[in-house]
């Protein structure tokens, strides 16, 4: 049996919110009997684009995470719903608008916070993966259709094919520790979850400070070299996906004495600048 899968690429999301607004266009003021009641005009974000800044001015990175119903295989909401929430054979999890009425506690069942409370209807609501459209022959959801960057894709695949895709594309689940087995998966999730360390290497020559383009930069922990990279034209380097802890960063460039900076990582940060001086023997020449 093939099932639907939304694939979200964090690297391609730019917070344009076309997904959120297309969802609102589809659901606000529109009832889709058998699927869901109208969404309130404000407050609900059935797909919610979250923002995270990594690092500090000026070496900052910004990542966005569209968060929506994960259409889980082991959905805690289904268990909590006692029949009010169900999963269809095509993988879509739906809330029964009659049986779920009044059950605000169902919001707490979702570890992703993807269920919203409709005060007027006294109803828990969430993304339906536009099931009313897919059932009518559409091949994509409103959010996928409106996404201009390719950050959102929708596929319908057999289990084995999808498993191969997950493996091949390096797709990941959000909050795997919740053991909900989401069928909505992410690409480049490290951009959201990882710790990013950035820094700059400069050099001095003839009394002028310049960017140490091409400097070899290494991340050390104790005696071990964990990562190596090269400073770019602006002397900047980045190590992404760094674990918390204490490190040293070294920089080397032909003709210059090596430089080093100590680094304590609690979260995404900027390393102390490393400045390279000409090697003494070259200066004396």
């Amino acid at each position: 049996m093939s099932t639907w899968h939304l694939i979200i690429d964090v690297d391609r999301c730019e917070d344009c919110n076309n997904c959120l607004l297309a969802c609102k266009d589809e659901h606000v003021d529109n009832a889709w009997p058998g699927y869901t009641a109208p969404q309130p005009r404000h407050g609900h974000r059935w797909i919610d684009v979250r923002r995270k800044e990594r690092g500090e001015f000026p070496l900052v990175d910004v990542a966005y995470l569209p968060l929506t119903c994960m259409q889980c295989e082991q959905a805690p909401c289904i268990e909590a719903g006692k029949g009010a929430i169900f999963k269809r054979s095509d993988g879509i999890v739906l809330i029964d608008t009659e049986r779920a009425r009044g059950h605000k506690e169902l919001l707490d069942a979702c570890p992703y916070g993807a269920i919203w409370w409709n005060e007027e209807e006294q109803l828990p609501q969430k993304c339906t993966l536009c099931a009313h459209l897919l059932d009518a022959g559409w091949t994509q959801t409103r959010c996928v259709q409106a996404c201009p960057t390719g950050a959102l894709r929708l596929v319908r695949e057999e289990e084995a094919d999808f498993a191969a895709r997950v493996e091949g594309e390096g797709l990941q689940s959000l909050l795997p520790e919740a053991e909900t087995r989401p069928t909505v998966v992410y690409r480049n999730l490290a951009r959201w979850e990882g710790i990013r360390v950035a820094g700059t290497v400069t050099l001095a020559r003839d009394g002028v400070i310049d960017c140490a383009k091409g400097a070899r930069v290494a991340l050390h922990r104790g005696d071990a070299v964990l990562r190596e990279t090269q400073a770019d034209a602006f002397g900047d380097y980045v190590f992404d996906g760094v674990a918390t802890g204490d490190y040293a960063v070294t920089a080397e460039l032909e003709g210059f004495a090596a430089g080093e900076a100590a680094l304590s990582v609690q979260g995404s940060c900027t390393a102390d600048p490393i400045h390279l001086e000409l090697r003494q023997e070259l200066v004396s020449e």
Binding site: N17, N18, A22, K24
Partner: peptide
């Protein structure tokens, strides 16, 4: 389309 276009119905 732009986001503001998708808000037109509202």
């Amino acid at each position: 389309v732009n986001s503001h276009t998708l808000a037109w119905k509202s």
